[in-house]
């Protein structure tokens, strides 16, 4: 049981690392959104499922409710993250930022 929890948690941390490094490395605003918005979502998904499983070790009504709340956060993140990404992209498009294409220097 502990092994599954550790595996899920470390997979989540791995995707979080990908998100943080991607924000630093990608060349422009539009391509930076790809790791920022979505590698973080999958990382949060895996890490939170692991934590909810660990929370169910001593099974009782209280821990079951807490795990359900963690699942509620997860559903909320899954609904909210694409919407937030779309809002940021919309702000960038209306401001007139041109997408980076191959061969230009990084901004």
């Amino acid at each position: 049981m502990d092994i599954i929890v550790c595996l899920l948690l470390f997979a989540g941390l791995f995707f979080f690392t990908g998100g943080a490094v991607g924000i630093l490395r990608f060349p422009d605003f539009y391509s930076r959104l790809h790791p920022a918005g979505k590698l973080d979502t999958l990382g949060a998904l895996l890490a939170m499922i692991g934590l909810a499983l660990f929370n169910l070790h001593h099974f009782s009504l209280g821990t079951l409710l807490t795990s359900l709340k963690i699942m509620l956060i997860l559903v909320f993140v899954f609904l909210a993250s694409p919407t937030a990404t779309h809002a940021i992209v919309d702000a960038g498009v209306r401001a007139g930022l041109a997408p980076w294409t191959k061969g230009e220097e990084r901004r």
Binding site: F14, F15, G18, V21, G22, R25, F26, P27, D28, Y30, S31, H34, P35, K38, L39, L42, P99, W100, T101, K102, R106
Partner: peptide
């Protein structure tokens, strides 16, 4: 996600990506 993670950690990332609309 695995595809994008591969892109992120690739040392020659700037040659692999090719953004388009």
């Amino acid at each position: 996600n695995l595809h994008v993670t591969y892109l992120v950690f690739h040392p020659r990332m700037m040659e692999l990506i090719d953004p388009r609309i």
